[in-house]
Design a binder for these strands. Structure first.
Length: 474
RNA sequence: GCCCCCAUCGUCUAGAGGCCUAGGACACCUCCCUUUCACGGAGGCGGCAGGGGUUCGAAUCCCCUUGGGGGUACCA
């Protein structure tokens, strides 16, 4: 039987880190076993679902390189299947209509809480007499559909991450609602657990890989598989991604959507690499910097951790800077260009020149966005910061700059610039460092940055060096 | 509250009873490279939550405690 897995996000927000990591594990598992990776959009919550989020999710997956093998399935379009399944369960007695009112349910919950017990439905309408049902109908009461859960039942499964798992029927909160409230002669909208199982069966899902926050759902879903007469898939419950405080990472934690990371200038390679590292430890031969394609052949749940992992910006930043440093000038320039343009910088220079600039800046970038501020003084007039102004106040510095402008060699290059600096320092009677700082201040407006000689040469290439040096002369 | 899960440096982790004087990576610190910053290179700091067992021997197995997390919907 060939492997079929799926990622099943609900379009109630952008593609989130947690969802993306689950998608990565699913994708890796599918590729490892030559199976298929599918996407199902769980848009049955009409209140909160938005088409724009579906786009965001699909775009995010694509950006990460998680290509899917069949057209995405939209859960909302599968309601007939859901209805039929519910009707079948109703027909064979595994499910029944419950007419309990909200007030009744609340009373139950409060009573249980007062008794220090877990809230649960007491199955009061499980075996209603025909007379009472008739009475409820006459009353015009609406009903939900509940699925019978035998309290004495032990639910067992072999989890690919956690090993043997066991859940007691009694801890599931009573007979579970599988269809929303509706007039008693109809079947309401299907609820999560029912829809998931029906769809996973229809899609032929063989392995369900999801976060550990779904463990209780798995117990319920296993019961549904049984009642629907379908063999259950294998389950893998992966550790959660935790925030700085050690809680489940949520949208409330600031930057958590894949689109955010992309906007900040993280590369897809670094992000997917990092997600692999959070919870999965690659075999030593792989090292810890690798692409999804490298990880796929060796991926397995035997090396997936059980404990949740905290999201660590430092590690992601390191991975991203490594990815950026490894780029050649041409690649980096292409990655930077849209950001330069968006920042309104002049990008009319020759392509080769821009590539040289990118190569010069490369080693100091952590995220692509860093390349905007750092390129700014090269792509437009420099704005002198305080330290630069102070440097240019120094008498000897001014003298050296005068010397430099007067002794410009006919053919300028980095080597010539170096000699010029030495000569200027000697003429002005100061250490070369003082002159270098002054030149840097004049050319770029700040005292720190990439190699001065290369920077100077680059500015010379677009005729920007002399004017800038002159501009700071008193 | 109740149910379930988890527990190695600050963080991510290696470790399947002797290979452990607990290894790696990030972060941090020092030095080198560099008359700047960064990159790069070399070192360093730092951990098996606690207590009981089992065993000749335990980070590894069992129990308890503690701590942390998840779940407890007519959301997904």
């Amino acid at each position: 039987m060939s492997v079929r897995v799926r990622i099943a996000p609900s379009p109630t927000g952008n593609l989130h880190m947690g969802t993306a990591r689950t998608a990565v594990f699913n994708w890796l598992f599918a590729r490892r076993h030559g199976g298929r990776f599918l996407v199902r959009i769980e848009d049955t919550d009409r209140e909160r679902s938005q088409p724009a989020f579906t786009d965001s999710i699909l775009t995010g997956l694509r950006w990460l390189g998680l290509d899917w093998d069949e057209e995405p399935v939209f859960q909302s379009r599968r309601s007939r299947d859901h209805q039929e399944a519910i009707a079948a369960l109703l027909a064979n007695g595994r499910a029944y209509r419950c007419y309990a009112t909200e007030a009744e349910l609340n009373a139950m919950r409060e009573a249980r809480q007062a008794a220090h017990q877990a809230p649960r439905y007491d199955n009061r309408h499980r075996n209603l007499s025909p007379e009472r049902i008739a009475a409820f109908h006459k009353e015009g009461r609406h009903a939900v559909v509940r699925f019978r859960i035998d309290d004495t039942q032990d639910i067992l499964w072999q989890d690919m991450v956690r090993g043997p798992m066991r859940w007691q029927g009694a801890d599931l909160g009573g007979d579970m609602v599988i269809a929303r409230r509706a007039p008693a002669d109809r079947i309401g909208d299907p609820l999560y657990n029912l829809a998931v199982v029906v769809d996973d069966i229809a899609m032929g899902i063989t392995h369900v890989i999801r976060g550990e926050d779904h463990i209780a759902n798995t117990a319920k879903q296993l019961l549904l598989y049984n009642a629907l007469g379908a063999p259950p898939p294998c389950f893998a419950h992966t550790p959660l991604i935790l925030n700085k405080e050690g809680r489940k990472l949520s949208k409330r934690d600031g930057v958590t959507s894949i689109a955010d990371f992309q906007a900040l200038g993280y590369t897809a390679a670094a992000v997917s690499n990092y997600m692999c590292l959070l919870g999965w430890s690659p075999p030593v031969e792989l090292g810890e910097r690798f692409g999804l394609a490298d990880a796929a052949p060796v991926f397995g749940f035997d090396r997936v951790n059980k404990a949740g992992g905290r999201f660590d910006w430092d590690k992601l930043n390191w991975l991203n800077s490594q990815a950026l440093h490894a780029m050649d000038g041409a690649t980096l320039r292409n990655a930077l260009l849209p950001r330069w343009q968006q920042a309104g910088l002049d990008t009319s220079q020759p392509l080769a020149w821009q590539e040289q600039l990118a190569a010069l800046l490369g080693p100091s970038l952590v995220v692509l966005q860093d390349g905007v501020e750092q390129a700014r003084p090269f792509l437009g007039p420099p704005e002198l910061d305080d330290a630069s102004r102070a440097q240019l106040q120094i008498e000897a510095c001014q003298a050296a700059l005068h010397y430099i402008l007067q002794h410009r060699p006919r053919t300028f290059n980095a080597a010539a610039a170096k000699e010029l600096l030495t000569a200027a320092a000697r003429a002005a009677g100061v250490r070369k460092g003082v002159v270098m700082k002054g030149v840097r201040a004049a050319l770029l407006g700040c005292l720190h940055g990439p190699d001065l000689l290369l920077s100077w040469d680059l500015l010379h290439g677009v005729g920007e060096d002399d004017p800038r040096l002159r501009a700071v002369l008193r």
